[in-house]
Design a protein around this nucleic acid. Structure first.
Length: 615
DNA sequence: GTGGATGAG
DNA sequence: CGCTCATCCAC
């Protein structure tokens, strides 16, 4: 039998069978070092294709491709049966499959404030919109959050999320094996006592695919009940129990996604993020795969390391060239010191990943991204000032739509807005930024005005160009507008933002408003204090005058702001108590109590949203 | 603040 | 493999 066996030293170094103690079941503070840690990665099968299939109400068994201009950006599994791939040319794809459903992504057109499914979108005049996919992505994320309320969830991309199942697993272990709630009374190690052996007959989750421990031995018996046999021959550990529980939970979530939203997913479950991500592609589509610790070495050794997340690029290429190697196994003999000499501090991560170790945490991301960028490569370059506005309008209306969408989760403001351009033949790009126009009724036009000002700062005008023959010809082949430093405003700031600009100030810039504000203060020497310093957090709350209001009105507003701010502290105290409660009995090794615990919910404030009128 | 590098898909 | 994003970092 051509099975591999790993030297005991490696079992140790790879940490394949760590001791699990009562503390590991009871404590939330063990973090990435908890041997019960179990991570899932779930991604949508050919996501864009599924979105379009659902939008159009098409039978999912029909072959469908999603087009971006003349390029295929998504191919569903029925279409793949015909040999169609992402790089296939559209005419070729149609020949391979005459009944192929071809859908072009939605596009923005100048003069339209929303993306549409234009019957014949033109790359010369339209801009691609991925809005539908972003919205569907958020719906899916919500299914994760509601079906796994105690798990940590990290949205990794538009079609992928990581889930840290450790906490729900701890809860379920205690329900199913109540004896794990406390160590035997006579055990001197107390919580550090190792757990009793796991149940002799573990229920390996049935509808998951378990990666075999010895793939060679599997061959031939695989189709029948091979995997089950195999699993039984390598004794189950408590981590295997944890994997099984995660498999149940993720299976439920995936079913919910399928039944409520109609999307199929593929998932991987393993002890850390990188392995979960890797094993998710073990079987696709509409399937989930589980990697036991015992199966890690034989799974990893033959694996081309450039498939590993973050080794797909430059770093992976350097490694491949330096050692003329392709697989993880070929690099296992290289010691850490040598790698560190050659490749610097990145090496530790690489060294550990090759041994199935990754301490990367699953961390919830804030509901909105830090930046939003709308860009367009121009098949017909911009050659004069007059060509610019149409594109600026298209890009800005897209960003305006996206910003307003983001405001469904809170009061979101970018700090700055930037214009980026790229000249033909110049690999570099130029950009210029300015503070975001801080106005109440945000429209595309306000943003357009700001961007056009940036354009003037960035490029010499047509007039000057004509007057000065030394100025090189304009040939812009890429234009982009971005919002940077996008943040959800906190309680105190939110009120300030809400009162910025009264009804009269529509469309005015923030700097104007501030100027008005200063003036009215000077005029009113009897004004009562408009600020209040919070005794709890020392934040200074303030209300700003709105044209035409009086002292009493302002004072009342300050009171309202104070009350809301106190509510905020109240809610914070509540959520902190929750953390403490959950953490009780978890031992003394809590390092940073504030860091873990339930994600702090953004408090909803009725009324404030109405300040931001939709177009 | 600007521009470059890197990476995902 | 062209296109559309996002993040991080040096200066």
């Amino acid at each position: 039998m051509a099975t591999f066996s790993l030297p005991a030293k490696d079992v140790d170094e790879w940490n394949l069978n760590p001791t699990v103690t009562y503390r590991h079941v009871l404590s939330q503070s063990t973090g990435v070092h908890n041997p019960l840690r179990t991570i899932g990665l779930c991604d949508l099968d050919c996501f864009y294709a599924q979105c379009e299939q659902r939008r159009l109400g098409i039978d999912p068994a029909l072959p469908i491709v999603v087009l971006q201009w003349d390029m295929l950006i998504a191919v569903n599994y029925p279409a793949r049966e015909f040999g169609i791939k992402r790089m296939t040319k559209l005419p070729d794809a149609k020949k391979m499959c005459p009944n192929l459903v071809v859908v072009h992504v939605a596009t923005y057109k100048d003069g339209e404030s929303e993306p549409k499914y234009h019957p014949d979108p033109n790359n010369k005049t339209h801009k691609v919109s991925l809005d539908l996919y972003r919205r569907e992505s958020n719906k899916i994320l919500n299914v994760f959050k509601t079906t796994l309320p105690t798990a940590e969830i990290e949205k990794a991309s538009i079609d992928e999320s990581f889930v840290d199942f450790t906490r729900p697993i701890q809860q379920i272990l205690l329900e199913r094996y109540p004896e794990l709630a406390s160590p035997p009374p006579d055990s001197p190690l107390n919580l550090d006592t190792p757990l009793p052996p796991p149940p002799a007959r573990l229920e390996w989750h049935k509808s998951s695919v378990w990666v075999p421990v010895n793939p060679e031995a599997e061959k031939g018996t695989e189709s029948s009940e091979g995997p089950q046999q195999e699993q039984d021959s390598t004794p189950a550990t408590w981590h295997d129990v944890a994997l099984s529980i995660a498999a149940e939970l993720l299976d439920n979530t995936r079913r919910e996604i399928r039944e409520t939203l109609g999307y199929t997913t593929s998932a991987g479950i393993a002890r850390n993020k990188f392995l979960a991500k890797l094993v998710a592609s073990y079987k696709k589509p509409n399937s989930q795969s589980v990697l036991r610790n015992a199966a890690i070495p034989n799974y990893l050794r033959p694996l081309p390391f450039q498939k590993i997340r973050f080794l797909g690029g430059k770093l992976g290429t350097i490694l491949a060239e330096e050692y003329e190697a392709k697989t993880v196994g070929e690099l296992l003999y290289i010691d850490l010191a040598e790698m560190q000499r050659k490749f610097g501090p990145e090496s530790l991560w690489v060294y550990q990943v090759f041994r199935g170790i990754d301490i990367g945490e699953v961390k919830e991301k804030p509901p909105v991204n830090k930046s939003m960028l709308a860009s367009k490569n121009l098949p017909k370059p911009i050659r004069q000032d007059g060509d610019v506005l149409q594109w600026v309008r298209v890009l800005c209306s897209e960003l305006a739509v996206r910003l307003l969408e983001a405001r469904e989760t809170g009061t979101v403001w970018p700090k700055t807005i930037a214009l980026h351009t790229k000249q033909a033949g110049d690999s570099a790009s130029k950009s210029k930024q300015t503070p975001f126009p801080f106005v109440r009724d945000l429209t595309g036009d306000v943003i357009v005005a700001a961007v056009m000002k940036l354009w003037k700062e960035l490029h010499t005008s047509d007039a000057e160009r004509a007057a000065n023959p030394n100025v090189p010809k304009m040939k812009i082949i890429n234009i982009a507008v971005s919002f940077n430093g996008v943040e959800t405003l906190e309680q105190g700031q939110r009120n300030i933002a809400g009162f910025f600009g009264g009804p009269a100030s529509k469309g005015a810039s923030s700097s104007k408003l501030i100027a008005q504000e200063k003036k009215s203060h000077e005029d009113d020497s009897n004004a009562s204090p408009l600020t209040y310093k919070c005794p709890t957090c020392s934040k200074v709350l303030s209300v700003l005058s709105v044209e035409g209001d009086d002292e009493d009105t302002r004072a009342a507003r300050l009171e309202a702001v104070k009350a809301e701010h106190e509510d905020f502290h109240f809610a914070q105290r509540l959520s902190r108590q929750e953390t403490i409660k959950l953490g009780a009995g978890s031992g003394k090794r809590r390092i940073s109590p504030a860091r873990r615990g339930p994600p702090s919910k953004k408090r909803k404030e009725p009324g404030i949203e109405s300040f931001f009128k939709k177009k």
